[in-house]
């Protein structure tokens, strides 16, 4: 067990992040915190890709450096995914702002009460 934790520490961290993110999204009543939970969840996935690309003793993937190189492709992919994540966060926060302007609350349950009486 300890072995696993030490030798696969990045993957353990990945699933911790995924777990925390999911928990925050479900358990938190505050809409902004839900968005934060979503970000933590995505960060877990980013870490997963980057960890997978790592090679023991590897150098940055630049031609002038000696082999072995770490795999460059996942880095590129995750760069794209981060951009997507930023865009998502922006849209989500935009909606949160509109919800607050409309209902005057960010609390999920209060929101339900307010909307129930619509």
């Amino acid at each position: 067990m300890m072995d696993l934790l030490v030798s696969r520490d990045y993957y353990v961290a990945t699933f911790l992040l995924l777990g925390i993110g999911t928990y925050v999204m479900i358990a938190s009543r505050n809409l902004v915190k839900k968005v934060i939970g979503m970000n933590i969840f995505q960060t877990g996935i980013f870490l997963f890709f980057i960890a997978a690309a790592y090679v023991e003793g590897g150098n940055p993937p630049v031609l002038t450096m000696d082999a072995p190189h770490v795999s460059p492709l996942p880095h590129v992919l995750i760069l794209t995914a981060i951009v997507v994540g930023v865009a998502l966060t922006a849209v989500a926060l935009g909606m949160v702002v509109r919800i607050y302007a409309e209902y005057g609350t960010l609390d999920e349950e209060t929101l339900q009460e307010v909307r129930g009486s619509e």
Partner: peptide, 24 residues
């Protein structure tokens, strides 16, 4: 979310959170 009611925004946010989990 382009609807002009609060309901659209709430629906869209829910869609966004769940949809993002799906895509992730």
């Amino acid at each position: 979310a382009s609807g002009d009611r609060g309901r659209s925004a709430v629906a869209a946010l829910k869609y966004l959170l769940v949809g993002t989990v799906g895509a992730s």
